[in-house]
Write a protein that binds this DNA or RNA. Structure first.
Lengths: 129, 129
DNA sequence: TTAGGTACTTACCAAAAGGTGCATACTTGT
DNA sequence: ACAAGTATGCACCTTTTGGTAAGTACCTAA
């Protein structure tokens, strides 16, 4: 359908990644990262507690850990207001913002195909018995 | 930036998912699934061995396992030609095809931001010492 | 005859991911 | 005085994920 059948990767071959998708996936690997990015893209700077309630199944430990990684990867920015009852918020960097944009179609797909996805999960659950 | 701050999820609240993105992520969770889908979207029906060589870091065990799950989830179709030296190929179902389309922006993002991604990974590696 | 390719399967093990619960230090509301 | 909210940190443990290496049954080329 495309290319010459010899090196069937999606882009020639990059540094350590097989293709752009591979690179992206390694950056957003982590149970909550895409959700965090997407949420921040919608609601702008958000305080820790608010994020916690939004991504409601994540534990503190996990959420903090993923936030730290996203920050280290320059996808989000942490702002500590140094106030007495702690106040901190998180916002997207330009890089994080562009990545969040790329997640939009996935969200759309999930919404549009909710019926199929739900069915698939029902089957998975049934299969486990 | 949007909505009313009370229920800050990306879509009201679905069956068991917090939003469409959540649903999608659960379907494509698995180290090689997005890569498999994306590859099949580009090259059409592909034999097992070819897939193996394309997704080159995956072991047989992993690849087979993920293929089985994708098949169970109705994202790909397995065709066994029942020939003597085994011949089998995999192709996308309509559902799988639409999901693969939603992955395109992620691939593009990875390619366009390869420099940043590479830097991020260099830092991660350095931080581990 | 022997090596290699086909598409898997299974058993065993290591590493990574993730959950629970407790602790901090200070403030505000009851 | 006491509970609750604020944003974490840490220790411990279980679950999930993924890798290695072996085996299967049959075929073809050297």
């Amino acid at each position: 359908m495309s290319q010459d059948s010899s090196t069937p990767t999606c882009t020639p071959t990059l540094p350590g990644f097989t293709c752009g998708l591979d690179a992206t996936l390694r950056v957003i690997a982590g149970k909550w990262k895409p959700l965090i990015l997407y949420f921040l893209a919608q609601d702008g700077p958000t305080r820790y507690g608010e994020l916690r309630r939004a991504v409601r199944d994540a534990s503190d430990k996990m959420l903090i850990q993923q936030l730290k990684e996203l920050e280290a990867d320059d996808l989000i920015k942490r702002t500590d207001y140094k106030e007495v009852p702690p106040r901190v918020d998180y916002s997207l960097t330009p890089l994080g913002h562009s990545l969040a944009q790329a997640l939009v179609p996935l969200c759309t797909w999930g919404t549009e195909n909710m019926a199929d996805v739900t069915r698939v999960f029902a089957q998975r659950a049934a299969a486990r018995r």
